[in-house]
């Protein structure tokens, strides 16, 4: 079987570039710094209150949260220039006249960006080893979390590639992706809060769970905390949703397994933006102009 040529070239050239090594190093240093600060604070406090190894599961949560945040910041920087960069370099036309389909080009770009993200995540795995020393988190749980983070990265990557197809300049597509990601992370939370306030002001009762569930369906943060809830036995997500109304029936299941809904939404977003990117990168677009 033949490897996607775009992916093969990207993999070959990206690792020749010192910027990639620099980015991976910064990424690892950042995560390691976070872990170091957590350990230092815990050990310092242990002089007065005693060291509790059970707290180390929170180190896992912090490391995962840092991974998630960094991935959401890094992915647009890597992927938002994938097509517009080809256009700026004047190599896009040469690519479009080949036998590669537009979908193959888009997929090649997405997978190569995800490859670098995966490399960054793998590079931080030794830091997670500290958590395993104290126990409390299983390897399958860690793999599950990495899978969820990569799926979220894929979602951010597909949005990035879509904007990269739309805008001729990489800078504009990067800005647009950050706006959309910011909207998904914080805009949806704000919208949910505004909905609650308006509803309460109008009817003086809880608004119910359906609208918040729908508004937050693409929010990577809520999905992430749902995974953490499932792995560490916390209930951040349930607590948030309880504000809006009583959980019963299917809403109870959805709130308890919100990461499943979030993952499904991510898959839908990926499919939608990849289809749109494939359409927009096609110079003919199936019609005359």
């Amino acid at each position: 079987m033949m490897m996607n040529p775009v992916l093969r070239r990207e993999m070959r050239t990206s690792l020749r570039n010192w910027r990639v090594f620099g980015a991976i190093m910064l990424y690892v240093l950042f995560v390691a710094g976070g872990a170091g600060i957590f350990l230092y604070v815990n050990m310092f406090e242990s002089y007065n209150y005693g060291f509790d190894p059970r707290n180390m599961v929170y180190l896992y949560a912090i490391l995962c949260a840092m991974q998630m945040g960094l991935v959401l910041i890094t992915t647009p920087a890597l992927a938002a220039g994938s097509i517009s960069g080809e256009r700026e370099r004047q190599t896009l036309d040469l690519l479009l006249v080949t036998k590669m389909s537009q979908f193959s080009i888009v997929i090649g770009k997405l997978v190569s960006s995800m490859g670098l993200i995966l490399l960054m995540v793998i590079a931080t795995l030794p830091i997670f080893a500290v958590v395993f020393y104290f126990g409390g988190v299983t390897l399958p749980a860690l793999l599950g979390m990495i899978g969820f983070i990569l799926l979220t990265a894929c979602m951010a990557g597909s949005i990035s590639i879509f904007f990269s197809c739309i805008f001729k300049r990489t800078v504009i597509s990067i800005v647009m992706v950050y706006l959309v990601i910011g909207g998904l992370c914080f805009g949806t939370l704000l919208a949910t809060a505004l909905y609650y306030t308006s509803y309460w002001n109008l009817y003086q009762k809880d608004p119910g769970l359906i609208v918040p569930i729908l508004l937050l369906v693409g929010n990577p943060g809520v999905g992430f905390f749902s995974v953490i809830d499932g792995q560490l036995g916390t209930n951040f997500v349930e607590t948030v949703f309880r504000i809006y109304g009583t959980q019963n029936g299917w809403t109870n299941w959805v709130v308890k397994n919100y990461w499943v809904v979030n993952a499904a939404a991510n898959v839908a977003i990926i499919c939608f933006f990849l289809a749109m990117a494939t359409y927009f990168v096609n110079p003919i677009k199936g019609k005359r102009k």
Binding site: R89, Q90, L94
Partner: peptide, 12 residues
Amino acid sequence: YMPDFFGVYDDL
């Protein structure tokens, strides 16, 4: 096809 203006992948 060879366009009038084209780029190359310099790192290849």
